[in-house]
Nucleic acid binder design. Structure first.
Lengths: 208, 208
DNA sequence: TTTTGTCTAGACGGATCGGTCAAAATCCAT
DNA sequence: ATGGATTTTGACCGATCCGTCTAGACAAAA
């Protein structure tokens, strides 16, 4: 018993440290991948950015690909949760979709680097990983498209193919990673509201 | 005279062939860069894709960077011309901006690969090239923002910061390179019209 | 046929980078 | 301090890839 307790305490410390360093490395890698692109970043870059050497990174991760995959997987988890949570509010399709768009825009602006990686580095994944990512994206978009369809059925939305309407909304929001500046004059909430507003009612003062 | 004529005839054939092969190489490179990313494509890939060897490519181009730069420069030229041409029509801001958005969407859908490269590979350019590209993008966007501002002044558009409104429109259109399928059920014109419509009047049937 | 300019092949250099490995250092319970 | 587990180091291997270079193929002019 005592032995077991001791070794497990020791293993505990070890695993906590491992978790911490893994997190550090993922953060460093996220910055660099977003800034220069996966292919242009070396393991040495990721390591020396933290004052480590390459070997340290390879102690905590099996390969460069595993680092990328960890980042990509987590991005999706975070995005999905916040969108799914909105469905509990039992809103009408037009209100719900506006809220979902708003939240997606906020997702992008909260971690622009994630969106950059998620969308730019898909080709760097291995075939089966890539299939998974594509499915994630499809499922995520489908959440929005279903609401759009429901809204069309109720006469709330114009009869535009859901795929086109949602594709437009996604582009609008995802593009934020290109130009959104956290230190800019507008807050993320303001921008998200503007976007939800434009998509719902357009930017013209009267209907065209 | 005869000598001069002869040698120039020979040079003529040569330069025509050079122009042709250079074009071939740029096309091959464009496909591959868009598909796999600049960094992941080797000169050998570009060459063997055409049945050539690496040396041929280096006979026609100084470096890999020159190929990328040629592609990027041309993209902008093509985009800009078609947008500037619309200004001659002397439309009111709301009509003009709708036409410009429509045209930009068509630009993207005509050569999705160009948009992909133009936006994904900016980090692969050399510093001064990158500065030029950023200026191109700023100037391009400014064309749209000016029209938006004029529309706001006339009470035609809602008072949204032009940068935000146009950023959204650009994202919407540029994102087409991710999902637009030329063989899909909708034509490029239909999609472009839908987008211009959404941005002008929203996707809701009544103003929210 | 010889010569000249244009184009191509293939080998090579040099640098980079992902990943491995054995040895050393560090840490902690006994 | 000792012993065992964990962590770090730095050298190293092998592969890839950009770009160069030399020799020669090929066509057209002389």
């Amino acid at each position: 018993m005592r032995q077991k307790k001791n070794t497990s305490a020791r293993a505990d410390i070890a695993s906590r440290k491992q978790a911490f360093v893994r997190e550090e490395i993922l953060t460093s890698a996220t910055h660099l991948f977003a800034e220069r692109g996966y292919r242009a970043v070396t393991i040495d870059d990721i390591a020396s950015n933290l004052g480590y050497t390459k070997s340290v990174v390879y102690y905590y991760f099996k390969s460069k690909n595993e680092i990328l995959w960890q980042i990509v997987s987590r991005i999706f988890e975070g995005y999905l949760q916040k969108i799914v949570a909105l469905r509990d509010d039992q809103l009408a399709p037009d209100q719900l979709l506006a809220a979902m768009v708003r939240q997606h825009a906020l997702n992008v602006m909260e971690y622009p680097e994630w969106t950059s990686i998620f969308n730019r580095e898909e080709t760097e994944l291995e075939p089966n990983q890539r299939r998974q990512v594509r499915k994630m994206k499809r499922d995520y978009d489908a959440l929005f498209e279903q609401v759009y369809e429901a809204g069309v059925a109720k006469g709330l939305f114009r009869k535009i193919p859901p795929h086109v309407a949602i594709g437009g909304a996604m582009g609008m929001c995802n593009w934020l990673y290109v130009w959104y500046n956290p230190k800019g004059p507008l807050s993320a909430e303001e921008i998200a509201d503007h976007y939800a507003g434009i998509l719902s009612g357009g930017w013209c003062t009267r209907a065209s």
